[in-house]
Nucleic acid binder design. Sequence first.
DNA 1: TATGAATGAGACTTCATTCAT
DNA 2: AATGAATGAAGTCTCATTCAT
Lengths: 208, 208, 208, 208
Amino acid sequence: MPKISKAQRDSRREQILEAALACFSEEGFHQTGMADIVGRSGMSHGAVYLYFRGKDDIIEALADDRHRSEAILNSAAQQADDPIARLRALVRAYARALIDPDGEARRRVGVHGWAEALRNPRVRARVVEGIDIPRALIVGLVERAQGAGRLSNELSADAVARAFVALFQGFLLQVAWGEAIDVDSCVAVVDRMLGGLEPGEARAEPPE
Amino acid sequence: MPKISKAQRDSRREQILEAALACFSEEGFHQTGMADIVGRSGMSHGAVYLYFRGKDDIIEALADDRHRSEAILNSAAQQADDPIARLRALVRAYARALIDPDGEARRRVGVHGWAEALRNPRVRARVVEGIDIPRALIVGLVERAQGAGRLSNELSADAVARAFVALFQGFLLQVAWGEAIDVDSCVAVVDRMLGGLEPGEARAEPPE
Amino acid sequence: MPKISKAQRDSRREQILEAALACFSEEGFHQTGMADIVGRSGMSHGAVYLYFRGKDDIIEALADDRHRSEAILNSAAQQADDPIARLRALVRAYARALIDPDGEARRRVGVHGWAEALRNPRVRARVVEGIDIPRALIVGLVERAQGAGRLSNELSADAVARAFVALFQGFLLQVAWGEAIDVDSCVAVVDRMLGGLEPGEARAEPPE
Amino acid sequence: MPKISKAQRDSRREQILEAALACFSEEGFHQTGMADIVGRSGMSHGAVYLYFRGKDDIIEALADDRHRSEAILNSAAQQADDPIARLRALVRAYARALIDPDGEARRRVGVHGWAEALRNPRVRARVVEGIDIPRALIVGLVERAQGAGRLSNELSADAVARAFVALFQGFLLQVAWGEAIDVDSCVAVVDRMLGGLEPGEARAEPPE
DNA sequence: TATGAATGAGACTTCATTCAT
DNA sequence: AATGAATGAAGTCTCATTCAT
C-alpha cells in the first residue's frame, strides 16, 4: 500500500529529523514549535504527521542516541585484547567525539534529552539505553582487567563504569556549554585517573 | 512604608520558590504552568507577580544554585591545610549531597537548568557561576598540591578541576535519574582516581 | 463625621485629578492604569478610592469640561452688546485657548472624551453639557443678530451655531495632534466666514 | 502554493474587519476584546491570527480610512474646472457621507481613531494620511481660486483648508454622537461661509 | 501522498478593586 | 483616614494537531 518506497520514506524522515535536531539544539524541545521544524524541513505541517505521530515522537526519535554511542564505540574497537588499552581507547574515542564540530547539535540535544528523561519515560528509556551500551562495555572491560590483575579487585566494576560515564557526561556538558576546554589535557588527566585504579597500595590514604 | 516586613516578604518569596521547585522538578520549566506554581504555593495568581516579574524570573531564581554550592563547600571546609585532604573532603561532601533525600528536587531542577542554560543567557550565567565556585576552589587546591609536590606537575590544574567537576555532574545526573548507585563505592573509585594524579611514573603507558 | 475639612478633601481630589489628567493625556483612559494614577498622584491605592468611586468616576470628573467652557466664555464676555462683535470675541477666545501651552493635556483628554462619549452615557452627558453651553450662547447671539438684521435670516441659527462649534472642535483636534497651525491665519479665515453670513445676496450662487 | 486564493483570503480579512468595525464602533478599541471580534466574525480564535498579527494590526487596518476619503473625493469629482464649484461639490459630498446610515460605524470608529492617534504613532500616521488627502486637494483648489481672483488673496490657503477640514471633522463628531443635525441647513451655512472668503472688503470689521 | 488553513484549549500576564491592618 | 498586599476574572496570543481538498 505504501505509495513511496521505503528509501524515500526514510529520506523524508531523516529530513525532518535533521530539521528538528537543529531546532531543538537551538531552543530545546519545548521552546521549539512544530512550525519551526516544518519551516526548516521545507515540508508541510501535514507531511510531518505522515512520518511521525507527533512532536513527542520526533523528540523520542532524537533522544535515541544508540547510533552515536555505537559509532563511538566502534571507532574505539581494536584488535588489542588488553582491557586497559581498550579503556584508554574508549576515552580517546569519546574525546574525539567531544571536539567534533559536526556533533555540536547532537551534544546540545543530548543535554536537553537528559532533562527530558527526567519526566518523559519513553525518552528516559531511550536515553538510558544509549548510556547502558558503553557502561555495560566498561563493566565488562573492568571485570576482565580485574580478573587479569590489572585493576584493583577492591573496586566495584559498576562504580568504575559509572565514574567513567560520569566523566564523559560531565565533559560533554561543559563542551556543550561552549566552555574553553583543552580536551587533550583532560584526556591526560583521565589517563592518570585510570592509572590510579591499578592494583597496589593506594598511594594516599583516604581520611578514615 | 512597606506594609509587610522584609522577613514576611522573603517568606512569601520562598513559598513561591518552593512550589516552583517542586513543579519544575516534576515537569521541567516549560511544561510547568504558572497555574501549577500558583496552585501549589497556595497563593493567588496575581500575588505571584508581586514577588516575581514573571515565570522567567522564577526560573532564574531557581537556576541560581550558588547557595547550594557554597553549602556543600562549607561542609567540606576543615582546618586541615593539606590540599589533597581538602580535595578528598570535597568529594565526600558532594557524595553526601548526592544521597540527601531532601535534595532530590534541587538535583532534578539542576539538570533542567543545565539544558536551559544552553539557550537562556541569564540562566546560563547563574548556572555557570554556581559551578565556577567549586571549580576555582579545586584549581587552587590542585596548584597548591602541585607546588607541594603532591600532585604531578605534568597535569593542567584546569583539566584536573574540570575532571572533578565532570565527575560531580555526571554522578548527579545519574542520581537524578534515580539509578541504583552505590555512592560509597563511587567515592572509593574517585579516591583511587585522585591517587593516580600523584607524581611519579604513570603506571600504565597510554597507547602511543 | 468627616475627619478632614472640605478644603483638604477638595485638595486631595484635585491632586488625583491632576495626576489622572496627565496620565490620560498621554495614554488615554483605557490604557492608563489605576497604578499610573496612584503613582503620579503620590497617594496610595486605597486613598484614591476614598475620593472617587473608581476609575470611571475619575474619567467622568475629567470629562466634565464645563469649567473650561465657562472660563473661555467668560474671557470673551464684554460689555459690548453687539452680537456680531461678541461672536468675533468668542472666536478669539477659543483661538487663545487653543494655543495655551498649559491647556495641552486638557485638549488631548478632551479628544479622548469625545471617543469615550460614544460608549459611556455618563461621560457623554458631561461632554455634551460642556458643548451645549457655548452652542446655546451662539444660538442666542445669532438670533439676536438676525433680529437686528445683522445676519441673514435665511440661515438656521442652530446650524450656524453647530458650524462654529464644528470649527472649534476641528481646530482643537488638529492642535491636539500637534499639527503646525497658524492660529491667527485661521482666525482671519473664520472672521471672513462669519462675514459671509451677513444678509445680502450670497455672492456666489451655490449649484442649484 | 497558497491553499486559498487571494480573493478568499481578502474575503476572510474583510469578514474580520467588518466584525471588528462593529465591535469597535460600539465599545471602542480598548474595551473591545478579541473574543468579541472572534465571536462576531464567526471565525475561530486562532484563525484571526492567520490574517492579522494581533489586535493592534486590526486597529491599524481600520484606522486607515484613505479608501473612504478617496471615495468621498471621487464622488465630488466633476468635469467643471471651476475651483469654487469644486469646493462646494466637496462640501456636499461630505454632507452626503455624513448622513449615510451605512457609514455610521465608520464614523464612530473614526472618532475613536482620532483619540487613538494621540498615543499610537502607527494609527496616527494612517489617520493623518486619510486627512491629508482632502486637505491637500482643498489647498490646491484654494490656490487656484486665489490665482483666478475668486478668493481673497489675503487668506492663507492652508488656513482655509484647515478650516474646511475642521468643519468636516466637527460635523462628523456631532453626527457620530447622534445629535439632531439638519445637514442641509448646515450645508447652507457652509456655503455662505465660503462666500465670505471671496475678495472684497470684509463686510464687518473685526474688533480692533 | 501532500497541503496548509483552521481549531480551541491553554499559556502567561495585567489590573480595578477590596480589606485587614 | 490611610495603606498596600492580595485577589481572580479577564485579557491577548500561541501552538500541536486535524482534515477537507
